[in-house]
Amino acid sequence: MALDIEPILGRYAHIAIEGVRHRIYWEEAGEGIPLVCLHTAGSDGRQYRAVLNDPNITRHFRVMVFDMPRHGKSSPAPGTVDDDYSLTAAHYVAQIMAFCEAFELDRPVAMGCSIGGRIVLHLARHHPQAFRALIGLQSSAHVDPYYDTGWLDRADVHGGRMCGAFAHSLMAPTSPSEHVDETRWHYMQGGPGIFRGDLHFYRGAEGDIRDELAKIDVAACPLHLLTGEYDFSCRPEDSRALAEALGIEVTIMPDMGHFPMSENPEVFLGYLRPVLETVRAAQAA
């Protein structure tokens, strides 16, 4: 029987982020328009395995997924392992811009989920000229705290088990168990404190972009929104409110939770491919 090898290639690059050298792991597949994918808080790039493996997409897009520092196979910057990690909007934007600039990507598409769905709004606000399109999955302008994130990182609770269980909560009960398990396993493997630290950006004031939505010009850089109906973190009504404020459409995905690309990849690809076709059509026009 022939060995089934995926077309994904993973390597390390040394990239300076805000002047600090980082060893960043990224995976990529395909050729064409760069499509940079941004994983959720506390997880890593494996969430986009189905996008990287989809020949319908990689035929036209160079799909690139990097693990944020501290996540997946991208270690913390030297000397920062024990720092009290809290992600800021400015640092998150800097990571993405540094990655795109290091690879000299020509106006890539950026697609992010959850915190990634939030940061694409910041990219739309501050760097619309750098991207040909942005895709927000589970994207909202803000989230009010509704639970104590301290439970995600404390000495008397196993962080991996806790984060995995919480990620499980955010998925749809109809998603395939194989992919639900894969998705929560990524969370179970996360470094201590990274989920909680990422949520510093996601919840509350740090990443709240409501006051700047009016300054986002979706004509300068098209923005596409896709949201799963089972997500209670970024609820459909949150994405609808965002879409209304920006004057754009949002697609609500039935039977889908907070991690569409990872918890139910095949169904998600059915939603993503037409969006990417729209991007290609705009390129050709």
């Binding site: 749809a172 009960p173 109809t174 089972y230 209670f232």
Partner: peptide, 16 residues
């Protein structure tokens, strides 16, 4: 058997 959105998990119920 298949709870509807908002009712599928104790965190969802807490959130709502």
């Amino acid at each position: 058997a298949v709870p509807r959105p908002g009712y599928h998990d104790i965190y969802a119920l807490l959130r709502n």
